[in-house]
């Protein structure tokens, strides 16, 4: 049976690695079905509605989309959990929660009302805390700091007195260069290097707010249900494969990019926020999350599920990954 689909991405076609999973998926699906099931992938430069993906998949203009769930925060605050939350789970923890905990079921519950099936679509791992023109040594340094930081993290920073500013992506570089803003957060070395922020801001802070950002595949329910079962399986298998692939793709790009930045700009300092600041961020995060949970039962349900899962999973992460890193640290010079 011949099936022709269209997929819209939030990103422009050249924004690797975020723009990589969808074309890879299309290629896999086409080959696995002997060319019978084709998916035409369109980047933001074609549909020109980067943040209209959910509406367009819901409305049927596209059968599929590739985006990130937290972009729908304004439509349903609960969607943030299916990307990442400040001080939340790592990529391994979150993937386990999604695939083997309650994650996928809760995600589907959230997107049912949009007439959409939602699947994980790749993970960026820990995102960096952002580029700063000056060092942050105390809470006082955050007061009045002009920073571009969207979403939940912006809410947290706003509570700490940061002057949260919206700047169009096209003007970010100029704004940071000229000091119109003092700091901004983007993704990680792999993507940041293309924006050139390392040339204009010397402090690169470690992440806290997006420990494992999951991307998202959206599929129009009606269209998916119409597919023969074998195509559904092909699609689901391919989605899982390209999701895993994106994690490594991004990991590799970031490792490469960081090596390059370090060599060309040896003066860039990687910093961890001071303890005082981090504690205040954590407290503010908890307040923000509790606040949403108090007024939104769905939000509360997912929040509780993540907290419970994370408590369990973190034990194992510590014993395994963290102790291993410490172990290998001990034997390296």
């Amino acid at each position: 049976k011949k099936v022709r689909w269209k997929l819209a991405m939030t990103w422009s076609s050249t924004l690797t690695p975020l723009a990589s999973p969808a074309p890879k998926l299309a290629k896999m699906v086409e080959e696995m079905t002997g060319g019978n099931f084709t998916i035409r992938v369109e980047g933001a430069e074609k549909h020109k509605a980067a943040l209209g993906i959910l509406d367009m998949v819901n409305g049927g203009q596209y059968e599929m989309g590739h985006s990130a769930a937290y972009y729908w925060k304004g439509k349903d605050i609960t969607s943030v959990f299916f990307t990442t939350i400040p001080f939340g789970m790592t990529a391994a923890e979150q993937g386990s929660w999604l695939y083997y905990g309650d994650g996928m079921a809760l995600q589907q519950k959230t997107f049912d009302k949009f007439n959409i099936y939602s699947f994980p679509g790749g993970n960026t791992g820990v995102q960096m805390g952002g580029w700063f023109r000056k060092e942050i040594n105390s809470l006082e340094d955050l007061k009045g700091l002009k920073m571009r930081i969207p979403g939940l993290a912006g809410e947290v920073f706003a509570k700490l007195g940061v002057n949260v500013t919206n700047i169009a992506p096209g003007e970010l570089y100029t704004a940071l260069d000229r000091g119109t803003i003092d700091a901004l957060e983007w993704v990680g070395p792999g993507m940041d290097i293309k924006m050139g922020f390392h040339k204009v801001a010397p402090y690169y802070y470690a992440g806290w707010h997006e420990p494992a950002s999951d991307m998202q595949f959206l599929i129009n329910k009606k269209e998916f249900d119409k597919l023969p079962v074998e195509y559904q399986t092909v699609l689901k298998t391919a989605m899982q494969a390209v999701s895993a692939d994106m994690y490594f793709d991004n990991f590799n790009m970031s490792a490469e990019a960081w090596a390059q930045i370090k060599e060309e700009f040896p003066n860039i300092k990687v910093k961890i926020f001071p303890k005082e600041v981090l504690q205040a961020m954590k407290k503010a995060t908890d307040e923000v999350m509790e606040g949403y949970a108090a007024e939104n039962a769905d939000f509360k349900e997912v929040y509780e599920s993540q907290k419970a899962y994370m408590a369990k999973a973190r034990e194992w992460t510590k014993m395994s990954t963290q102790y291993y890193l410490q172990t290998s640290e001990m034997v390296s010079e």
Binding site: S12, T16, Y173, D177, K194, V200
Partner: peptide
């Protein structure tokens, strides 16, 4: 800059 993956600066 986006398409060429070159820094805008």
């Amino acid at each position: 800059g986006d398409v060429f993956q070159q820094p805008v600066g």
